[in-house]
Nucleic acid binder design. Structure first.
Length: 424
RNA sequence: GGUGAGGUGGGUGAGUGGCUGAAACCACUGGUUUGCUAAACCAGCGUACGGGUAACACUGUACCGCGGGUUCGAAUCCCGCCCUCACCGCCA
């Protein structure tokens, strides 16, 4: 959520910048400004009326204590008009406040200056690529066939137990998953991230804090009986650790990592995008989250991107890093870098990580602030997060790219975690 | 699921209608004292939105889980909701 103050101070800039996200904000911004024109005036009037009311009430109290009942009752008579005035002004005020709020939550975050214009994922800009595309043997298979051939993942069994998009990993497939999770967590810890084990369901306030609610309600599994939501990413519980807190500037940045299962309804997905591990309702992910000082957040974003890069490098996957264009940028993000790894058998790039700076957009909802030494007013912090990494497509790419006549080779870094070096 | 208790400032916790934005203690910040550590003493110490200021200062209003009501006046009384804790039951 953008701050009202920012919009008031820079209405044209907001409209201009949101065009990059292909969002026409003119009407909303104009309405916000118009609604707020009278707001201060109304507040002034209301405050004055209340001040007078408070004064009278105090006087009545004193009169009663002194036993001057008659004078007290006389004073009472003056209050009814004031009461009416206050009620009216308050109603007017809160109606404006409410309307403005409803408009505010509709505005996406402002993209960073470096975000390229563009309509869709086709307009994303490749900023870097690395690794070599695997040379696959003849008759190489896509991961869903490999998974079946080596009995690693049973998709049909998942359908029986839960439905499409809930695969059952078994044997070496299951161990491979566990190895990746442990590898990612250990790497994150080595890079200064504190490990968190968060709840997998969150309340409404948490869903709102990171921006899933109310906009993306339909994307989350909702436990209606208890009004809890299954987390779509560990970002939600981990970032909400910092909801409603004021931190000391000198303690920034906070660095957290968390493994969690992630649950997404993925309503509206279809076709080959959902084949195999490409898109699931439940998947595993290790997330990294940082709470940063605004002056440092972009340096930290670079650091996070560099960190994720080391992961795909260590896994020896061919990758590319994309700077998302305005059209592909999420509602809450100011700048996002996506990581894609190349799946040789499917002959396509798979998104495995998304690293974003949300600036104050989430912090404003979370009321996450920091206090600078010597400065009285607390300021909104910046939040950042990234996948490091999401498992399914990494697994898909590793299976496909490392297939040989004799089985699937396990990347060196994972061998100690797996306890085997080939899947056969 | 049953029964009971309770939600007050960073923490503990007092406060049953006016002098309470809120005692006291702890924590924290500044100062005095001190050979160091420690201690003692003094002072300060919430947030939001207004007014005000170059910026402070200063100042108005609101906020004692959330929403509503009673009253001239509500942390305090009434109603609804949410949440937490304890014990019992069930259970990984």
């Amino acid at each position: 959520m953008l701050t009202l103050k920012f919009i008031q101070d820079n209405p044209d800039l907001v409209v201009e910048k949101l065009k990059v996200k292909n969002f026409d904000a003119k009407a909303i911004v104009d309405e916000i400004i118009a609604l707020y024109e009278n707001k201060n005036q109304i507040q002034g009037k209301a405050d004055n009326a209340k001040a007078e009311m408070n004064k009278i009430s105090k006087e009545i109290g004193i009169l009663f204590r002194e036993g001057k009942k008659e004078e007290a009752n006389q004073a009472k008579e003056r209050t009814s008009e004031l009461k009416e005035t206050i009620k009216q002004l308050d109603t007017e005020f809160s109606s404006i406040d409410e309307k403005v709020y409803d408009l505010l939550v509709q505005l996406p975050n402002i993209p960073h200056d470096s975000v390229p214009a563009g309509k869709s994922e086709n307009d994303n800009v490749t900023v870097k690529s690395g690794g070599d595309k695997a040379k696959l043997p003849e008759n190489s298979l896509p991961h869903w066939e490999l998974a079946q051939k080596y009995n690693l993942i049973d998709f049909e069994l998942g359908v029986k137990l839960s439905g499409a998009g809930f695969p059952v990993y078994r044997g070496k497939g299951s161990r491979f998953q566990r190895a990746l999770i442990n590898f990612f967590l250990d790497q994150a810890r080595d890079n200064g991230y504190e490990e968190i084990q968060p709840p997998l369901v969150v309340n409404e306030a948490s869903g709102f804090g990171t921006g899933q609610l109310p906009d993306k309600e339909g994307q989350m599994y909702h436990v209606t009986e208890d009004n809890l939501y299954l987390i779509p990413t560990a970002e939600v519980p981990v970032t909400n650790i910092y909801r409603d807190v004021i931190v000391d500037a000198k303690n920034l940045p906070y660095k957290n990592t968390a493994y969690s299962a992630c649950f997404r309804r993925e309503a509206g997905s279809y076709g080959k995008d959902v084949r195999g591990l490409n898109r699931l309702h439940q998947f595993d992910k290790v997330e990294i989250v940082q709470i940063a000082h605004p002056d440092k957040s972009y340096a930290i974003l670079d650091e996070m991107v560099a960190y994720v890069e080391t992961l795909v490098q260590k896994l020896e996957l061919p990758y590319r890093i994309l700077r998302l264009c305005g059209g592909d940028l999420s509602f809450a993000s100011a700048l996002t870098f996506d990581f894609e790894v190349y799946s040789a058998a499917q002959e396509k790039w798979l998104e495995v990580s998304s690293v974003s700076n949300f600036e104050t957009f989430q912090a404003n909802r979370l009321k996450l602030r920091y206090r600078e030494e010597g400065v009285k007013k607390p300021m909104l912090a910046h939040t950042l997060n990234g996948s490091a990494l999401a498992l399914p497509r990494i697994v898909a790419a590793l299976l496909e790219n490392n297939q040989t006549e004799n089985g699937i080779k396990v990347p060196k870094v994972l061998v100690p975690y797996c306890g085997f070096d080939i899947i056969d």
